[in-house]
């Protein structure tokens, strides 16, 4: 969906026409969900936070006035909620930050969640998965990812190419079968 259509839907929603929520949700859901998932690394929790994000958006849409930046505004709300929830959880439950958890959560209890993407990225390391999600789905540049993951730019570029190579090989194998 182009930015103009999204802005029109946002304006309609601001005026109280709830029917446009569906349009906005469809246009923004992917970035919102994966922004949250890369932070909390738990699909069930990400789903809850996603709901909270849209509820918060609906509550404060009347105050929103930055033209053309709706997706960025919504993503900021999502990121903010995700960080707060994650920090709260860290206070309640011990989380070992040295262990880099799978972005899709533990395999046992999340088998039905994120099934398509997990299947495609099955052969990738956790870090490669995160690099691919950030670049392809969230549209982040390699430079931004390098800063966020605290790694050299060259490493991120290499990891991304390597990840695509693995996915390509797997796609070829699946095709052969």
């Amino acid at each position: 969906m182009d930015n103009q259509t999204l802005n029109e839907a946002v304006n309609k929603l601001k005026q109280g026409d709830d029917a446009y929520f569906e349009v906005i949700y469809e246009a923004t859901k992917t970035k919102v969900y994966y922004t949250i998932l890369t932070i909390v690394k738990d699909p069930s929790m990400a789903e809850d936070i996603m709901q909270d994000t849209y509820l918060k958006m609906l509550d404060s849409i009347k105050k929103y006035k930055n033209k053309n930046q709706f997706q960025a505004w919504l993503t900021t709300i999502a990121r903010n909620l995700a960080i707060n929830t994650f920090n709260k959880r860290k206070k309640e439950v011990y989380v070992d930050e040295d262990v880099n958890p799978n972005i899709f959560g533990s395999v046992e209890d999340q088998s039905e969640k994120a099934a398509y993407l997990r299947e495609i990225m099955r052969d990738l390391s956790h870090e490669e998965q995160e690099v691919v999600i950030r670049h392809v789905i969230l549209g982040e540049k390699h430079k931004t990812i390098a800063k966020a993951l605290n790694k050299p730019l060259g490493t991120i570029t290499w990891m991304y190419q390597n990840a695509l190579k693995k996915i390509r090989t797997k796609a070829g194998d699946d095709h052969d079968e």
Binding site: K29, T30, Y33, P43, E47, Y54, Y116, V136, I137
Partner: peptide
């Protein structure tokens, strides 16, 4: 990849 990711977004 994007299409798979989109399909996995929960419908809430």
């Amino acid at each position: 990849i994007y299409a798979a990711a989109e399909r996995d977004v929960p419908n809430v």
